[in-house]
Simulated scan of single mutants.
Amino acid sequence: MMTVDYRLNALVDASLADIAPLAELAAVAARHGATIIQYRDKAASTRQMIEQATLIAEALRGTGVPLVVNDRVDVALASGADGVHLGADDMDAEMARRLLGPSAIIGLTVKNQTDAMRVAQAPADYACIGGVFETISKVNPDTPVGIDGLRQLRAFLRQARPDMPVGAIAGIRLDRIEPVIAAGADGVAVISALFRSVNIAAAATEFRRHIDAALELRI
């Protein structure tokens, strides 16, 4: 398994294209504190996604920050991304691992105890619990798990997979970093609060500062 630094996952969603090219957004985040970049597009064609993921991968070259593609193993393979992030309805982690190889990053979503049990047995490098709070970045029919749900799911995963980093996603703001990390998260995935801020570079730096401070408090 890969060792993944999940402290700050900057998620570049297709909905952010009105701000700037996604590759540009990813590069700014990577240079100012993001430790992993995730590309997500629920509507584009396969060709468009491959083109976009390739541009993002090129923009990240030299930063040391890996790129994972949401849902699409084929796009990750074709674009040279570092791995994938998969939900419960996507390709299973075992097959993704066979296709992508031992050095690829595979992340999995955890929304409930069933997901957590599946992840505990999967060849995954990290997990992300959520949504923790309400979010405007994605239509989500599932009720947020909240801080208590995050704590419970994280406790299960810590026992089952003690070395696997686990993040938190959805509705993450600066003021929520300390409580989610206190509840067990090793990092956070952020979209709007980072990329729709007035100064993206400064926001990334501030998110990273808050995350690192919260992790130190937990030790």
Rank of each mutant, 00 (worst) to 15 (best):
P66E: 08
A120R: 04
V119Y: 02
V132C: 05
H32D: 14
V180Q: 00
S137Y: 02
A203S: 15
V188I: 12
D148A: 12
A122M: 13
G146N: 07
L11S: 15
D186R: 04
R151F: 00
T63K: 04
L16M: 03
M117L: 14
A202S: 12
E206N: 10
M117T: 12
A34I: 05
Q38I: 08
D142V: 11
L153T: 04
G187Y: 01
G146Y: 05
E206Q: 13
D125C: 12
Q159Y: 11
G171W: 03
L153V: 15
T143G: 01
T109C: 13
S15F: 04
V180S: 01
A201N: 07
R209Y: 14
V75S: 06
I200L: 06
F156P: 12
D74R: 02
A203R: 14
E206D: 15
A29M: 10
A23E: 06
T54H: 01
R209F: 10
V75T: 11
G187R: 00
D5F: 08
L194I: 04
M49D: 05
M49S: 08
G149R: 05
A30D: 08
L8Y: 01
L55M: 12
A17P: 00
L11G: 02
V68K: 05
A124N: 12
A17L: 07
R161Y: 03
A168P: 09
D142I: 09
A127K: 07
A57P: 01
A29W: 06
G184W: 03
A88I: 10
P141T: 01
R196V: 08
R208Y: 06
A104R: 05
E58L: 06
D5I: 07
L11K: 12
P165W: 05
G184A: 14
L11Q: 06
T143S: 10
G171C: 11
R151M: 13
R40T: 14
I211W: 00
T109M: 02
P144Q: 05
A20D: 03
V166L: 14
I169T: 09
A93T: 13
L108S: 08
Y126P: 06
L150V: 12
A160Q: 13
K42N: 08
S192W: 02
A127Y: 09
D41K: 07
T35K: 03
A182K: 12
D125I: 08
N140V: 15
F207I: 14
V188F: 09
D125W: 06
F207T: 06
R196I: 08
T35A: 09
A30G: 13
L217Y: 07
I136H: 13
I181H: 01
N112T: 10
A88H: 14
Q38V: 04
M95S: 13
I200F: 01
V65N: 04
A53F: 00
A214K: 09
P102G: 08
P21A: 08
D18G: 02
K111G: 11
I37H: 01
R31K: 15
